[in-house]
Design a protein around this nucleic acid. Structure first.
Length: 279
DNA sequence: GAACAGGTGAAGT
DNA sequence: ACTTCACCTGTT
């Protein structure tokens, strides 16, 4: 991949395994929005960007400095997904999903945003999750003016920690609101320390996350994979249960090691968008 | 109206 | 250890 600074954006020449649409739509994040022209606009780490594909290159607004300080890491551009895909494809049961999912990258999201988002995601469909998160950020995040529109950062934990359930009523997030508040308080008080989680093995970090009210195994694994980039985490939801059952009972995600999370993403995308064909 | 949606936790077997 | 159910809200 070669970076070229253009007027107002950076062009990623010859970047491999990066399809912005698949990456943003595969269910790992909820706040990148597609414009009519196909470009995506979103916010991460308090910074806004627009991302699009042009002549086979991916382009990201901002300077080379912006790119190196935020987007290079956020899009996980220093990891070799082609290699992971080839390794996973060695299992014939995964081949179709790997081919279909080529271009997906696991975003390195902010841990607190991942935790808050997936707490709110439980037993909800994607449009509704997006709506709740959009109201959450508009109400309590910091406004960011970007190309004539107003975007919002994901609210800091200590901001939410100071609120009451009543304050969250406009989100219409139902029974998940108290879970979000209690998680925000755990983070704000230091009772849950993402820095400390980073230094723990995946199993111990999972236990710590599950100790939060309203956080079970599935949400914990989403936080591990999307927020802490533990690619050995393998979130299992209702869709993944379907995928796993079509793979056969002897399929064991743990055997995939550090590629498990990537396999999960490919499988998830495939089972949801890959048609009726068995995985 | 009923059933269901990217779960969780309590209570029942 | 496994199954069942309620939880808030919106959509089909």
């Amino acid at each position: 991949m070669k970076l070229i600074a253009e007027n107002g954006f950076v062009r990623l020449c010859g970047v491999s395994d990066f399809d912005p649409e698949k990456t943003f739509e595969c269910g790992q994040c909820f706040r990148w929005e597609k414009s009519p022209d196909g470009a995506y606009t979103g916010v991460a780490f308090g910074r806004a960007a627009r991302v699009w594909t042009e002549n086979g290159d991916v382009c990201v607004t901002g300077t080379l400095t912006d790119f190196d300080s935020v987007w290079r890491s956020y899009f996980d551009l220093d990891s070799d997904y082609g290699r992971a895909r080839r390794a996973l494809s060695a299992d014939k049961r995964l081949k179709n999903a790997c081919d279909f999912g080529a271009g997906i990258r696991i975003l390195r999201q902010e841990p607190w945003e991942a935790l808050g988002s997936f707490i709110l995601s439980q037993c909800n469909n994607i449009p509704r999750i997006r709506g709740i998160l959009s109201r959450l950020c508009a109400l309590f995040g910091d406004p960011i003016r970007f190309k004539g529109e107003m975007l919002y950062s994901f609210p800091m934990a200590d901001r939410l920690a100071a609120l009451s359930e009543k304050d969250l009523a406009p989100l219409r997030s139902g029974y998940r609101a108290p879970y979000l508040l209690s998680a925000a308080r755990a983070v704000a008080s230091g009772k849950l320390d993402f820095g400390a989680l980073s230094g723990m093995d995946t199993g111990s970090a999972e236990c710590k996350l599950i100790s939060l009210d309203g956080v079970g195994k599935k949400v914990a694994h989403c936080v591990l994979l999307y927020g802490l980039h533990r690619t050995d985490a393998f979130p299992v939801d209702v869709w993944m249960r379907r995928a796993l059952s079509s793979l056969g009972g002897d399929f064991d995600p743990d055997s995939l090691g550090a590629n498990a999370g990537i396999a999960q993403q490919y499988l998830f995308h495939y089972i949801r968008n890959g048609g009726e064909a068995p995985v």
